Amino acid sequence: MKLQTNNWVLAAAIFAAFGTGLASAAYAVQSDDSTGMPAEQHQGNVTFVSGGIGLDESHVLRADARNWPLELQFTGPGSDYLADVHVSITGLHGAEVLQADSHGPYMLVRLDPGRYVVHATYKDTDQTRAVVVAGGGHATVSFRWNEQ
C-alpha cells in the first residue's frame, strides 16, 4: 500500500509540474502580445502579419501599418472585410518571395526595397497589382472583390 501511495504522490507531483509549465507557456504567449498584434510569420527573409477580423486587431494593424513597407487590404462588396485570401508576391524576374494566406482583411509585409507583383486570389478569382516598395517608405495595395 505504501508503494501505491508513493506512486500517486509522484504522479501528482509530475502532473503539477507539467501543468505549471503549460500555464507558464500560455501566459508567456499572451504577455508577448500585449499590443493585440497578430504573431509575426516568416518566409525566407520576408516577415509578415495578417488579420484584422475583430475590431481591436483591425485597429492595431491599421495603426502599425505605416511601420511596414507594404500594406495589403482585402475587401468585398459594400467594403466587407475578407479573409482567406491567398497572396503570392513575386520580385525581380518572377522570383517568388512570399506565398501565404491572409487571416483577415489586412496583411503587412516587410520586404526589401524593389519592384514587386502581388497576386491575390479569393474564391478562385485572381487579381494582380504591381507595387514599388521604396527604402524607408510605405506602399498600400487594395484588392476588392464583388463576390462575398
Rank of each mutant, 00 (worst) to 15 (best):
M1Q: 11
K2G: 13
K2H: 15
L3K: 08
Q4C: 05
W8K: 15
W8L: 15
V9G: 00
A11T: 10
A12W: 04
A16R: 04
A16V: 13
A17R: 02
A17W: 11
A17C: 10
F18G: 04
F18V: 10
L22W: 14
A23R: 03
A23I: 12
S24V: 15
Y27D: 09
A28Y: 05
V29L: 06
Q30V: 15
S31H: 07
S31I: 09
S31C: 00
D32H: 06
G36E: 10
M37D: 06
A39S: 11
A39L: 12
E40I: 14
Q41F: 01
Q41S: 14
H42I: 07
H42P: 00
N45K: 12
V49L: 13
V49D: 04
S50L: 11
S50D: 11
G54D: 14
G54H: 08
G54S: 15
L55N: 14
E57H: 06
S58M: 13
S58N: 15
H59K: 14
H59W: 07
V60Y: 02
R62Y: 09
R62K: 14
R66D: 02
N67F: 01
W68G: 00
W68L: 01
P69S: 03
P69F: 03
L70V: 07
E71C: 06
L72Q: 06
T75V: 13
T75P: 04
G78R: 10
G78C: 06
S79E: 15
S79Y: 15
D80Y: 13
L82D: 12
L82N: 12
A83N: 15
H86M: 14
V87S: 05
V87W: 01
S88M: 05
I89H: 05
T90E: 11
G91V: 02
L92F: 12
G94T: 04
G94I: 06
G94E: 05
G94V: 09
G94Y: 06
A95L: 14
V97Q: 14
V97K: 13
L98K: 02
Q99H: 12
A100Q: 11
S102V: 03
S102I: 08
G104H: 06
G104A: 09
L108E: 01
L108D: 02
L108Q: 02
V109A: 08
R110N: 11
R110H: 10
L111M: 07
D112I: 04
D112S: 12
P113Q: 13
R115C: 02
Y116P: 03
V117A: 07
V118T: 02
T121D: 09
Y122K: 01
Y122E: 02
K123C: 00
K123V: 05
D124M: 02
T125G: 00
T125L: 10
R129P: 02
A130S: 08
A130R: 10
A130G: 04
V132S: 09
A134R: 06
G136F: 08
G137L: 00
G137K: 00
A139H: 09
T140C: 04
F143E: 03
F143P: 05
W145C: 04
N146W: 08
Q148C: 01
Q148G: 05
